[in-house]
Design a protein around this nucleic acid. Structure first.
Length: 369
RNA sequence: GCUGGAAUCGCGUAGUGGCAAUCGCAGGAGACUGUAAAUCUCCCCUCUUCGGAGUUCGUAGGUUCGAGUCCUACUUCCAGCA
């Protein structure tokens, strides 16, 4: 069982430590999205320097290239990527269900590689085997995402996710008992969309399973998220960590998530925003490509102690983006990733010292005007 | 000096008798939440009450119902020959 210590609680919110074979994660924590075993535009050294505690890679992308077995041969995801710290893998369910030509059955999903057209089939069992081969500390169960926000589609997706969870747990246990691999852990994934009754049902179902933690999936908008998380996290057992899948582009998601009992987050938003020139500041996101920054010789965000903000002006960053220099994306990614990691770290500190509500209010008021 | 060729929105281009007129770049703005995202969308002659309205394709004439497209002259540029 994955060891998770809770140091302090404040309502549903909690401060804790997840002890993984590759090190501790002080929670709440923002986990870097390293889909193809890299955080786009950043080296692992830069990720460490900006304060990241863990990364999350994607099983779907990695089985297409370079293949799960190659990562196993390299000694696992942490060693292969030189991250060396705690790692997660997402199951690939999210990607597969967004593919145009995918054939889904009770057994799993059939699809073709977008790289060379070769045929693939992903099942709960294959996802578990691939995740064990990739060797992240924490795996996500292979889940089924609904085709629409429609209630009936959501219910079908949730029920299939539950059926697949049982198969994931069985396969996970089977591999674990073979005793031939290092310690790895499994999170169940909760579905149910925007429907609280389905979310509650999904949480109750997953809560009973022999898993090490929970991923909360299928959230596409912050609307209603806080209430949904209250429902789900009130049901889930307290002593296991909860990961909010894919949310964290908007700072309010991080506050709402932590406040309502989520321990870790991952999101591609910060680095994608960065590559597209949208940079976080305490006063909201700015588009550094805008003409008004041409002569702005102030630092990007003076209150920030990342490598970008300690050294470079807005005018310089503007210039790098306008000339499409690679360093534009590097510096912007360092900043945005540091920004969200730091926000969550400060949320942690504020829960510890009892100032969370004040911190949340003052941050959000300034950020969103 | 002669002979050919070319002049189209900031730049480069498409357009050879019937759309303010193609595409790219540059420029302006927006989007992005478990990443097939170094991506995508919109605007980009002028004015606009966003329905339209006006003025355009080196300059000046001409032919034609109609000209960026045909004819003449001029101007500028390019190539070749002197």
């Amino acid at each position: 069982m994955l060891k998770f210590d809770i140091e302090k609680r404040d309502g549903l919110a909690r401060v804790g430590v997840i002890h993984t074979p590759h090190g501790d994660i002080k929670t709440p924590a923002f986990v870097g999205a390293a889909t193809r075993a890299t955080v786009k535009a950043l080296t692992m050294e830069e990720m460490r320097n900006l304060g990241s505690q863990a990364i999350l890679a994607n099983t779907y992308h990695l089985i297409l290239r370079p293949g799960a077995e190659l990562i196993k041969e390299a000694g696992g995801l942490a060693k292969f990527s030189s991250w060396h710290g705690p790692t997660f893998t997402d199951s690939g369910g999210f990607q597969i269900f967004s593919l145009p030509d995918v054939r889904i059955s009770e057994n799993g999903a059939k699809f073709r590689s977008y790289i060379d057209g070769s045929k693939f089939e992903m099942t709960p069992e294959s996802s578990m085997r691939d995740q064990w081969a990739i060797g992240a500390d924490i795996h996500m169960a292979f889940d089924h995402l609904a085709k629409s926000e429609n209630y009936d589609d959501m219910k079908v997706a949730m029920e299939r996710t539950h059926a697949w969870l049982d198969r994931c747990v069985a396969e996970h246990e089977r591999i674990k008992e073979s005793g031939l691999v290092p310690e790895q852990y499994l999170y169940a994934v909760i579905q149910g969309g925007t429907f609280n009754d389905l979310r509650a049902e999904s949480a109750r179902y997953c809560a009973k399973k022999a898993v090490d933690g929970f991923g909360i999936g299928g959230v596409f908008t912050a609307d209603g998220m806080a209430g949904m998380l209250q429902t789900v996290n009130s049901i889930l057992p307290e002593n296991k960590p909860r990961h909010l899948l894919g949310m964290g582009q908007e700072p309010i998601d991080l506050f709402d998530g932590a406040e309502n009992g989520c321990d870790t987050f991952d999101c591609v938003g910060p680095t994608r925003m960065a590559r597209n020139g949208s940079l976080y500041t305490l006063d909201g996101r700015i588009n550094i490509k805008n003409a008004k920054y041409t002569h702005d010789f102030t630092l990007l965000m003076p209150d920030c102690d990342c490598e970008c903000c300690k050294n470079y002006t807005r005018a310089y960053l503007h210039h790098l983006f306008k000339t499409d220099e690679i360093t534009a994306k590097v510096l912007a990614s360092i900043h945005n990733e540091h920004f969200v990691v730091t926000v969550v770290n400060k949320i942690r500190a504020s829960i510890l010292n009892g100032t969370f509500a004040d911190y949340k209010q003052s941050f959000l008021e300034r950020y969103y005007d």
